[in-house]
C-alpha cells in the first residue's frame, strides 16, 4: 500500500507535471530546431513568437467567451488556436520578407542572424507588451480536472491523490497530435521531404530544382504553428505572462541543443529530458521517501536537491554538460 502511495505521489507531483511541461518544451524546441536546420541560425525571437501567438489566441478566446462560444469540457482557447496560428504565421512571414530575406541573400553569418533575431525579439516583445500588457493573464476554462485528487482517493482508497488537470491532458494530447502530424508531413509529403533535403544539402537541393523561398516560407509557417501551440499550451497549464515566455527561451534552447540542433526527434527527446530533470531535481522527495523507507529511516529534511527557483540552473547545467561532452547532441544534429 505504501509503495502504491509512493507511486501515486510520484505520478502526481513529478510524472504528470513533467510530462505536460516536457510536451510544451518539445513543441518549442521543434520550432527552434527546424529554423536552425533550414535557416541556419539560432532564433532568439522564438520565445516572443510564442508569446505573440498566445496573445492573439487569448484575444480571440476572450471574444469567443464574450459571445458565449465555448468548447464544453475543452478550453475555449483550442477553438481560438487556429486564429492565433494564422496571425503568427502572417507575422513571421512578414518578418522574413522585411528582415531576414535581406541577410539570407547576403549570405550573412549565423552570428549576424542571431543579432538580427535579437532585434526581432525586441520588436515582438514590445508589440506583445503594447497590446496585452505585462501582467499575468489567465484564459483557461473548460474542465478543471480530468481526474481530481479527491475522486481518485475515493475510488482507490489510497492516502495519496492523483490529479490530472484538464490543461495537462489537453497539452499531452495536442502535443502528441501535433508531433504526429509534423512527422507525417516531414517524412511523407513532397514539401516535407524537400525541406529535409534543403536542411541536408542546400546546394544539391537547389540543383534538384527545390525552390528555396518556398522551403523557407513553409518552415516559418510550421515554426509559427509550433510556437503558437506550445505557447497556448503553456499558458493554459500555467499562465500567460510575456516575460515568462522570454525566459522559456533558455530551457527550449537547452532542449533543442541537448537533442541535437536540427534534429526534430532530438528536440522532442530534449524537451522531456530537460523537463523531467527540472521537475525531479527541484521536487521535494520527502513525501515519496516517507512512504518507501521504513519509519526509522524517515527523512527529516525535504529531500529537495535544489530550490524551485533554480530550475533554470538545471536546464543550463545539462546544456553545458552536453555542449562540452557531446557537442552535436544526443541525436547528432548539425554543427555548421
Amino acid at each position: 500500500m505504501d509503495f502504491l502511495n509512493a507511486l501515486v505521489a510520484f505520478l502526481n507531483f513529478v510524472f504528470v507535471p513533467g510530462l505536460a511541461y516536457g510536451a510544451q518544451l518539445a513543441l518549442g524546441a521543434l520550432g527552434v530546431t527546424l529554423i536552425y536546420g533550414i535557416l541556419r541560425f539560432s532564433n532568439f525571437a522564438h520565445g516572443d513568437t510564442m508569446a505573440f501567438g498566445t496573445m492573439v489566441t487569448i484575444f480571440v478566446t476572450w471574444f469567443f467567451q464574450s459571445i458565449g462560444l465555448t468548447a464544453g469540457f475543452l478550453p475555449t482557447a483550442l477553438l481560438a488556436l487556429p486564429f492565433g496560428i494564422l496571425a503568427t504565421a502572417v507575422m513571421v512571414l512578414a518578418t522574413d520578407k522585411v528582415i531576414y530575406q535581406f541577410y539570407r541573400r547576403q549570405k550573412a553569418t549565423p552570428t549576424i542572424l542571431v543579432i538580427v533575431s535579437m532585434g526581432v525579439m525586441f520588436v515582438m516583445n514590445g508589440l506583445v507588451r503594447l497590446f496585452i500588457g505585462v501582467d499575468d493573464q489567465n484564459f483557461a476554462d473548460g474542465g478543471r480536472f480530468l481526474i481530481s485528487a479527491g475522486e481518485f482517493k475515493a475510488a482507490t482508497g489510497l492516502a495519496e491523490g492523483l490529479s490530472i488537470k484538464g490543461s495537462q491532458a489537453v497539452t499531452v494530447a495536442t502535443a502528441a497530435l501535433t508531433v504526429a502530424l509534423l512527422f507525417w508531413f516531414l517524412q511523407k509529403t513532397r514539401t516535407g521531404k524537400s525541406m529535409r533535403a534543403f536542411a541536408d544539402n542546400e546546394d544539391l537541393a537547389l540543383l534538384s530544382g527545390i525552390n528555396p523561398d518556398r522551403v523557407v516560407q513553409v518552415t516559418w509557417i510550421i515554426a509559427a504553428t509550433l510556437a503558437t501551440i506550445a505557447g497556448v499550451l503553456y499558458g493554459l497549464d500555467k499562465s500567460f505572462r510575456p516575460f515568462t515566455y522570454f525566459q522559456l527561451l533558455l530551457p527550449i534552447f537547452a532542449a533543442a541543443i541537448v537533442g541535437g540542433l536540427g534534429s526534430p526527434l532530438g528536440a522532442i527527446a530534449g524537451g522531456f529530458i530537460i523537463a523531467f530533470s527540472e521537475v525531479m531535481l527541484t521536487y521535494a522527495w520527502k513525501k515519496v521517501a516517507t512512504y518507501v523507507l521504513p519509519d526509522s529511516m524517515a527523512p527529516d529534511s525535504l529531500l529537495q536537491l535544489m530550490g524551485t527557483d533554480y530550475k533554470f540552473a538545471v536546464s543550463f547545467a545539462i546544456l553545458i554538460l552536453v555542449l562540452l561532452f557531446l557537442p552535436t547532441g544526443l541525436f547528432k544534429g548539425k554543427s555548421y
Binding site: 529535409r196 533535403a197 541536408d200 544539402n201 546546394d203 544539391l204
Partner: peptide, 10 residues
Amino acid sequence: PQTHNIFPSM
C-alpha cells in the same frame, strides 16, 4: 558534383 552530392540523412 564531386562532393556533397547526396542528402545524407535521407
